[in-house]
Simulated assay, not measured.
Amino acid sequence: MSAPDPVPGRQPRAIRNAFEVLAEVVAAGPGVTAREISAALRLPRATTYRLLNLLVAEEYLVRLPDLSGFALGARAGRLAVPVVPAPSTAARAVVGHLRARVRWGAHLASFAGGQVTVIDPDPDHPPGDPALLARHPHASALGKLLLAQTPDRRFRAGELQRLTEHTLTDPGELAAELKEVARTDLARQCGELHLGRGCLAVPVRAPGDGALVAGLALSGPADRVADPNDDLVELLRAHTERLAPLLA
């Protein structure tokens, strides 16, 4: 095996500067301007703009709608392990009630930190490797709920990993599906994460502003997920309404 190419001399400095820009946005808060970042880090204005443009393109930063400054982007949340509190006894009771009503696996997931974290997995129907759910949201129903909240996100060719022959890896097809998920508040995957297994998921939203806080999912055979019973979906939605005030 050939040795990897050495890192060019200027790249470590550029990488360090990029991290310093991210740290300055965290410290200064949303709305910090390029001029303020340049002054705080004593970086040339041109270098600061170049780093900001790169970080925006990679979705670690976003420009505020009025273009007045910058804030952390969707991918910045993946730089830290989210602290996810365990669900309350009351919330677990709601999920337990759902499990008693269906023969599917029922799982409650948090979206804290911008990633999927299962906080109440069904002990009789384990949801699988939690790392897969966190790393490949495009292949799970819970992940699609999360991705549908950021419709402007653009996936690059090759970014969407194929986990099974059914996994959606075409950015355009995924974007179309996410648009439908956002419209219906219902996500599904049929054999995209594990062959033969599927999942339905609906969002749990805060009662006040409707912000996405969690997802409730039912897992079962892929063929049943492909054509779910309307009564089953309504049962799932009814339990998310009961969960909303307990998780917000």
Rank of each mutant, 00 (worst) to 15 (best):
Q149S: 06
L243V: 02
Q115G: 07
P203A: 15
A28S: 11
G191I: 02
L55F: 04
V81D: 14
P8R: 12
F19A: 15
A18H: 08
D5E: 08
V118P: 07
P171H: 07
V7G: 00
L186H: 03
L142G: 15
V102W: 06
A201P: 01
R50H: 04
H136F: 06
D185K: 03
A86H: 12
A222N: 10
H194C: 01
P44I: 05
A86I: 11
L133C: 02
P85D: 14
E173N: 12
S38V: 01
A91V: 11
A148T: 05
R103T: 05
L195V: 15
R154T: 13
A157T: 13
R188E: 04
V81G: 13
L246D: 03
N53W: 06
R162M: 09
I37R: 08
D124F: 02
R135P: 08
A248N: 14
L216M: 10
D66C: 01
Q11I: 11
A214Q: 04
E234G: 04
L51P: 05
L64I: 02
V56F: 01
V102Q: 04
V102G: 12
A112I: 08
T47C: 01
D152L: 09
R162V: 13
V213H: 03
T47N: 13
A226L: 02
V26S: 05
R63F: 02
D185I: 03
A100V: 08
R183Q: 00
L235G: 09
V62D: 00
A80P: 00
A134N: 03
A244T: 00
V94N: 12
R75I: 12
S140L: 04
T89G: 06
A28Y: 07
A211P: 06
R205Q: 03
V32D: 01
S140W: 00
I15V: 15
A100W: 07
V81S: 14
G215Q: 04
T33G: 06
G114Y: 10
S2V: 13
D5G: 09
P12E: 14
F19W: 11
G77H: 09
A134R: 05
A109Y: 07
L43P: 05
V95K: 08
A248P: 02
